[in-house]
């Protein structure tokens, strides 16, 4: 964790730097606002606190503070500015600009250090909050049982894959697959056996996937897979590979071995930049669903392809 200080007056800067260094802070020193901004851009991932003089040549503390606060970083930067004792106008202006605190000049060493600790507390809170939010977001888009994306998560990823295919002018393929007679598994062996089957289906399909393909649980026993850069031929081969890896050997579950099979609907499309991502995704899912229905109608444990125009 580094502290950036920007102060054009030498003695103030040295006193400040020394006080911080004596207390274990790693200090980056700038002689004016522009230099501070240059240093900040280079070292921003390690800078958590910035102590800025308000009046500086080249770029003043106000502008510098704005720039630091506008830089979108993955952590909070606590900004303290240094100002003349009774300069209420600049105190108000500084705090309104987004600075977190101010110190009157000449600053008191003990006050500086304890205000810095306040900043560190805020940085810790912010970090904990950010991590909790990330965890919540992951939970919100993950299927608890199988660990793959849930419906919301896979739709999010499919949208970004489709828009990438649009930019790269490549074909995007969607496979909708459904476990055959899954209700029977649940009814015969119980729900925990059903869960075991779901997990094993996902494991088998994942091992047949390329690392950059995406998979998600779309509904109860329905899954969707997004395959990039695959035309109709390859996508059907891949869907066939999925089908085989499920039915080629029985599933070992608590209470015995059972045969499982899946049916798949395959659709592919070459999106362009003009396509509306949401409309296209909806159309592809609808088409894959129709194909899946055809596969079921034709006797299950098979792949059906459909083309959309």
């Amino acid at each position: 964790m580094k502290v950036l200080i920007a102060e054009d007056e030498n003695i103030s800067r040295m006193v400040l730097a020394k006080a911080l260094a004596n207390h274990g802070y790693e200090v980056l020193q700038a002689h004016d606002g522009q230099e501070a901004w240059d240093i900040f851009q280079k070292e921003k991932k390690d800078i958590y606190v910035a102590i800025l003089d308000w009046q500086m040549p080249e770029m003043d503390g106000l502008e510098l503070c704005q720039k630091i606060k506008d830089a979108s970083l993955s952590h909070y930067v606590y900004v303290i500015f240094l100002t003349g004792k009774k300069d209420i106008d600049s105190i108000v202006e500084g705090l309104e600009t987004g600075a977190d605190d101010y110190l009157p000049k000449p600053f008191d060493r003990r006050e500086l250090l304890s205000r810095l600790k306040v900043g560190l507390r805020l940085i810790e809170f912010e970090k904990a909050l950010r991590e909790a939010n990330e965890k919540l977001h992951t939970l919100a888009i993950t299927d608890g049982l199988t660990g793959i994306s849930n419906r919301r998560g896979i739709l999010e990823r499919l949208r970004s894959e489709i828009s990438r295919a649009g930019r790269e002018n490549s074909t995007f393929c969607l496979i909708m697959l459904d476990i055959d007679h899954f209700k029977k598994v649940n009814d015969t062996y119980g729900h925990s056996a059903g869960d075991e089957v779901l997990v094993e289906v996902v494991n088998r399909i994942k091992s047949a996937l390329r690392p950059y393909d995406v998979i998600g649980r779309y509904g109860g026993e329905e899954f969707v897979v997004g395959i990039s850069k695959a035309g109709s031929k390859i996508s059907r081969v891949i869907a066939e590979r999925f089908r085989t890896c499920i039915c080629e050997r029985p599933f070992q579950i608590e209470g015995g071995k059972i045969d499982v099979s899946i049916s798949s609907g395959v659709v592919d499309f070459m999106p362009s930049r003009d396509n509306d991502i949401n409309d296209l995704l909806e159309a592809m899912i609808k088409a894959a669903d129709i194909a899946l229905y055809k596969a079921k109608e034709a006797g299950r444990n098979r792949v059906a392809y459909i083309s959309i125009v």
Partner: peptide, 15 residues
């Protein structure tokens, strides 16, 4: 005012 400001900062720190 700028020079006064600078002198003020330095002398303030040195009491």
């Amino acid at each position: 005012s700028e020079t006064g400001h600078s002198l003020k900062s330095a002398s303030g720190n040195l009491s």
